[in-house]
Amino acid sequence: MSEMKKIKNLKEFSTSADRFEGANLLCPGCAHSIIVREILNATNDDLILSASTGCLEVCTAVYPYTSWDASWIHIGFENGSTAVAGAEAMYKALKRKGRLKQPDREPKFVSFAGDGASYDIGFQWISGCFERGHNIMHVVLDNEVYANTGGQRSSSTPIGSSTTTAPAGRVSYGEKQNKKDMLAIMAAHGAPYVAQVAPNKWKDMIKKIQHGFAVEGPVFINAMSACTTEWKFLPEDTIAISDLATDSLVFPLYEIIDGTKLNITYRPKNVIPVKDYLGAQGRFKHLFKPENKHVLDEWQKRVDEKWEYLQRREEAGV
């Protein structure tokens, strides 16, 4: 087992040498690359990475440029998890057969995918990888929308959001379905570790990523990725919006160990109203019309109920 990188504080963390490069084509202010940087910098181990088709993939490997300083593979929209699982299987085989070129080094296998590639089209592949117990980490860059193709709804899109395929209009308040609870689904696979993270809470992120790298077996990370383009806020506000999300408990930060033991890892000192979070984004602005007040009420109720549920789970230790 390789040694865990010591990151006591942000100053120490800032001595990291990034393995993700600039002049990629992600939008100014994109949270994807903040998340990717935090994850990659959480370890000094070698990395074997994959990306499913999506913003991260189409912006970081457009010929003739790559933004990756570690081996990286993209196949398709649905199969990034299986791509890196295949590489992990090859690593095991070559290790057993004594054919690794650097036998003393133990790379980490990480698959990056958007919510569309994880909650929707790639769901079966991820489920298969987790059931088989590959030693991989699957990271969802969850911006709650098909951002790469211009803002279509996914099963991660939250209720009331206006997307191009479920737009708000004269008779519609936008998305009618509630966001899919992927963490619960992945925990139900019996995965040794699943966690929800947000880039603004970098310390919580690093801790969870390092825990994920340390366990044997498949790890699922759902990372909130505030999307300046599709959530409709200014690029400079990415971290501020993320703070609103975590402090309103719209994105509670927690982990589930071995499929059952739930820990809440961040408790805001002052919980802010959900409408403060919703109101800061263009995708929800129609909810503030009088006729949509019931959706705002519904939102707050759901967030309260979820928080209550998480606390009871944590308390019960199951």
Partner: peptide, 14 residues
């Protein structure tokens, strides 16, 4: 990809 001294990007977009 497992040659850790020679990182390679597979499956680019063109």
């Amino acid at each position: 990809m497992l040659d850790l001294d020679h990182p390679v990007t597979h499956g680019v977009q063109t």
